[in-house]
Amino acid sequence: MTTAAVGNRAVATAGPAADDAEATATRERPRNRENGPGWAFVAPLVVFFALFLVWPLIHGLYLSFTDQSMTGAGGAFVGLANYAEAFADAEMWRALWNTVWFTLLSTVPLVLIALVMALLVEAGLPGKWLWRLSFFMPFLLASTVVSLIWVWIFNPQLGLVNSVLQSFGLAAVPWLQDPTVSMISIVIATVWWTVGFNFLLYLAAIQNIPEQQYEAASIDGAGRWRKLWSVTLPQLAPTTMLIVILQILASLKVFDQIYQMMNQLVTPATQSVVVYIFDTGFTGYRFGYASAISYIFFAIVLIISLVQFRTNARRSA
């Protein structure tokens, strides 16, 4: 969207000039003169960016080669010892797997349900604004609020889910405590919470599909389903790619809802890698080791992003 806006701006300013070369020549000098104040405008962002993103990134990398403790102790250079320990650390691998598992479990419904909701709303449900509002509203809540709500919904004794189950004569389930279902419970809460954002992206994309294409399809004798399969879904492909990428990156970072819904209890079934990093660095004081795990995780996310980037580039080429 930003590139589109920049492109339009260029058209808007340079467009009226008859001769392109002349326009650039006359604009050259004032642009240079404006660079000073320009930097002043950008400076706050650059300073913050450097202080709170670039510097921590570099410092974290440095820490990962030391045995720095949060309490100020340690700090000696230990070479690759932290990385060696991490690669042999079964808990880290389990946490990584949990993270991947959460990503798989959450991304599929977050894309599919969002699509179905957007299609339903666009298909002309009565009270469209109400549907739009209620599908999107949970996304506006803070993670703490979402966690509180779902902890009560999943409460084994008093929770909504179990009372419904019991009214049908089914057994109550300890949703957040039983290791076989606890991750799924967290995924359900996450889907409810964040599906609205993907829904909105789909809705915007559907509304952008030119009406002529549907008209043309009608003339060719296409019915509703044919139009869905042959016009709507292909037109939504770029949006789907975008949503999948954003969703995978968001899901890999999962921390808040797990930490809060599990009442800070780390369980083998729900410990994501960010939970493990937090625990190692802040409760366990081991900054150096936690930094090393962060960088391993960083590398994995980078690889996933690059692969996605590559496949996308190939597809659009």
Partner: peptide, 12 residues
Amino acid sequence: TSTNDYATAVAE
């Protein structure tokens, strides 16, 4: 009951 969390026990 074997399935109480702390808040539910307080409530009970």
